[in-house]
Design a protein around this nucleic acid. Structure first.
Length: 283
DNA sequence: AGAACCACCTGGCAGC
DNA sequence: TGCTGCCAGGTGGTTC
């Protein structure tokens, strides 16, 4: 059992690093396998799970498991599935005969005798069928991949011009940049010494470069941390798809800054908690 | 057009 | 102790 007693440790929500970790962990175990079908126990996720899911996937070989933003794209020979883990979703491989627990809503049954099992207590996740999943409307309006070559300080500078919204809100806007949720937005802003409330268009070009690098670095380090827990979501040990990490500011309101000892402050922006060090993040 | 909400959902926890 | 009620958060949708 992992220690969850320290306030600075959290079970990470599925942001980009967690989704990418899930993808990397599952891909070698499922790609190339054929689906025997699907079992849907609870079709009411964010959108209804297609009624004919079993029939749609039966007999099809899995050709790829890709990621776009926080969506997973399970490519099949004909069509495919879009999967989203929402806030509380997890995917893991279990023996198909493993008894489902309360929130195990969907199983994709593999010819290996295993099942790809979606658990999602809060049901903000999604399982959608598409004839051409990569061209699904939900993916069409997504912004740039922060770990791609195209995302850098200049790209962030361009995105933020003319935007009066707070910089934290901007970097969390999936129509501009995908995959940066509340946790990594807070952490990246700390690393870049930028206060979350700063107006996006007030960010100088050098600071845009610094923030873009901080976003990449924060996400990369989280993916690396997740790599050590890859075994956790095959065969069902631990909490599949999640890993725990130490944060500088997220969830640390009232605690001393790890760099300067100043008390971490919190506020609400767009109905979401922001945490920052008033000394390290000036303006 | 852009910005600021809301709805969705349940487990966990503070407060009484 | 058990109840109430708030909070967490991604993201499409609504409203202003």
């Amino acid at each position: 059992m992992q220690d969850d007693s320290s306030a600075s440790y959290h079970r990470a929500m599925p942001e980009l690093p967690e989704v990418e970790t899930v993808r990397r962990g599952l891909s070698p175990h499922i790609v190339g396998h054929r689906l025997r079908g699907a079992r849907v126990r609870h079709p009411r996720l964010r959108w209804p799970v297609p009624a004919g899911l079993d029939r749609l996937v039966k007999g099809q070989r899995i050709t790829a498991l890709e990621r776009r933003g926080k969506y997973l794209i399970l490519g099949l020979e004909h069509g495919g599935l879009l999967l989203h883990l929402g806030m509380s979703g997890s995917l893991r491989l279990v023996a198909a005969a493993t008894p489902p627990e309360k929130h195990d809503h969907v199983d994709l049954l593999l010819d290996s005798g295993q099942a790809l099992r979606l658990r999602d207590p809060r049901r903000f996740g999604a399982v959608l069928w598409s004839e051409a999943p990569a061209a699904h409307p939900l993916l069409a309006s997504l912004g740039i991949e922060p770990l791609s070559r195209g995302f850098d300080g200049e790209a962030l500078y361009r995105l933020s011009r003319g935007k009066t919204t707070a910089i934290k809100h901007l970097i969390m806007d999936a129509h501009l940049i995908v995959g940066v949720g509340n946790i990594y937005a807070n952490e990246a802003l700390f690393q870049a010494c930028i206060r979350p409330t700063l107006r996006a268009d007030q960010l100088s070009r050098p600071r845009c470069h610094r923030l873009a690098e901080a976003i990449k670095d924060t996400l990369r380090r989280a993916i690396k941390a997740g790599g050590s827990s890859l075994r956790d979501f095959v065969n069902g040990h631990g909490e599949p798809g999640y890993f725990q990490q130490s944060y500088f500011v997220y969830g640390r309101a009232g605690e001393p800054c790890r760099q300067c000892g100043t008390t971490i402050k919190s506020l609400r922006q767009a109905n979401r908690a922001s945490h920052y060090c008033p000394n390290c993040q000036k303006g």
